[in-house]
Design a protein around this nucleic acid. Structure first.
Lengths: 126, 126
DNA sequence: ATAAAAGTAGTAAAGATTACTGATTTTGAA
DNA sequence: TTCAAAATCAGTAATCTTTACTACTTTTAT
């Protein structure tokens, strides 16, 4: 994996937010720095970074892929109302081990996702 | 929610498989029974059924929505090699309660997903 | 029976992601 | 350094998935 300015910018954007953005959102942010970067470049690098384990995918079921620069074990809450994704400090590591031993799988990633309505939306009734 | 032959067929297909199929797969299956059913009808009904809690979404991060007719609490394993989704008999209900109490969320669904390589692929080295 | 409400087929449109091409950049060895 | 192979890129087109729209049909409750 060779170095590229574009990939570094993508990683930086992703590592400096907790909003679990989509490719399009990352594209818009990186364009501030590199105005003529291509959307395809963003997609290609996100896929490569995910393969290398530098970032992680967060599938929440909104027909869009989301990415997370935080690869430490934790979980996610997806709000169906405001579509935000927030972190939940729950480490599913012990279940990983159990699944691997009991079922014979080779486990790469663990995603534990809740969906519902977040605190802010409950308050504001969005 | 009124009755429709199409929706019944969709539910039946979904309740009689454990393969966690996509909309396109369900469409193909239902077409055996109802040859001129529309793909839009499948999508519309899947969304309606999910909203009613009769079926459940399984997002695994392959840019496709998957559905599950089994709504009892359990978890999923997604194989990156053969793209199969299999069930894991793990009930994440206790974490649901904890998250609701500690964080103040209104939790609707819980998805616990592992990704990696399944037993069959490990054996066959797909 | 019948009319309002819900649902449908068929098609078009939109949105997200991937593929392709010729140019540019990175890298490591001469 | 210099240079060629490998990797990456921008730009664009194509593909794949999902949603929207419209005129017609079915369901439901009176």
């Amino acid at each position: 994996m060779n170095y590229s300015r574009q990939r570094e910018a993508i990683v930086n954007v992703l590592k400096s937010t907790t909003s679990h953005p989509s490719a399009a959102w990352i594209y818009d942010r990186v364009r501030i720095q590199i105005p003529n970067i291509s959307l395809g470049t963003v997609y290609r690098n996100l896929a490569a970074l995910e393969k290398e384990g530098i970032i992680v995918k967060v599938p929440v079921g909104d027909n869009r892929e989301h990415f997370d620069g935080d690869t430490t074990p934790h979980s996610h809450f997806y709000c169906k109302s405001c579509e935000s994704i927030s972190d939940i400090p729950f480490d599913p590591g012990d279940i990983l081990k159990k699944a691997e031993e009991n079922q014979g799988y080779e486990v790469h990633t663990v995603t534990y996702t809740l969906t519902g309505i977040c605190k802010e939306c409950l308050k504001g009734r969005n």
